[in-house]
Amino acid sequence: MFGRKQEDDTTVVHMLASALRRDISFGTLLPDQKLKIEALRQRYGGSNHSMRETLRLLTAEGLVEATAQRGFRVTSATEDDLRDILMVRVEIEKIALALSLKLGDVAWEGRVIAAQHGLTKAEAAVASTPDDLKALEWDEACRAFAATLIEACESPRLIDLHARFFDQSRRFRLALLREGGLDFAARKARQRALVDAILERDEPAALRLIEDEITAELTTPR
């Protein structure tokens, strides 16, 4: 009986966390905005306990911060935050990709090709119809591609760190999309070159290209 209730509570928390992540990423919940439990419950549902657990989960992911007054707020989204997230993502993903190149098999190569194909289709769709639904589908395709590139590294901790910092970068990536700051033709060429380097097991080229991809995904061209 208690096991089933705990499982239900966990499901509710995960559903609430997904909704809040989406709204933080799309700017519906703004950087530094205070998050009051009762107001969030009225908007998203759930109990006081499940909402508090949701905010603790998002705090662990770096999307929400606990304040000294025992409250919560959305994490800031400054240029310094972006530079820090970018630095960490580059280092984590280069280490994980290098390991994947050493350990990944032919089946992993096939999944990389499939993920790149899915991303290409999602980018074409969002470039022609940049609404919120297409943006969300594109963001998920970005996530799938990035996750597949490193999934053969055989390090659960690296994979967990990647997922955490990928989520922290969503706001910046989606803002750049809304501002028209993405060069989709250049992205397609770079992603194709990255996949080719992976298939050839050309580690120096693959590491250079993944750094270029992360940087271009999060920063406005100068």
Rank of each mutant, 00 (worst) to 15 (best):
I150F: 03
T148N: 02
L149D: 05
F166G: 02
A146V: 07
D160C: 10
F145L: 05
D160A: 15
L177C: 06
R190S: 02
I150P: 04
L158P: 10
R173Q: 15
F172W: 14
F145K: 05
A186S: 12
R171K: 07
S169Q: 08
K188V: 06
P156H: 11
I159F: 10
L199F: 00
L194P: 03
E154M: 07
L149M: 08
R178C: 11
A197F: 00
D160F: 15
L182Y: 00
R143M: 06
D160L: 15
H162C: 00
A186E: 13
A189E: 14
R164M: 12
A163T: 09
R143P: 00
A193Q: 09
I159D: 06
A185N: 15
Q191W: 03
A147Y: 09
L182Q: 04
C142K: 13
L174D: 06
A163K: 15
A152K: 06
A144T: 13
L149I: 11
F184G: 03
L174R: 15
D160Q: 15
E179F: 02
R164P: 01
C153E: 02
S169I: 07
I198F: 00
S155M: 02
S155P: 03
A185L: 08
I159T: 08
R157C: 07
R170P: 11
L161F: 13
A185S: 08
Q168L: 06
C142I: 10
S155V: 05
L177Y: 01
A197K: 01
A193I: 02
A146P: 07
G181W: 02
E151Y: 10
A147Q: 14
R190M: 09
L177K: 06
A186R: 10
G181I: 08
F145T: 05
L182M: 06
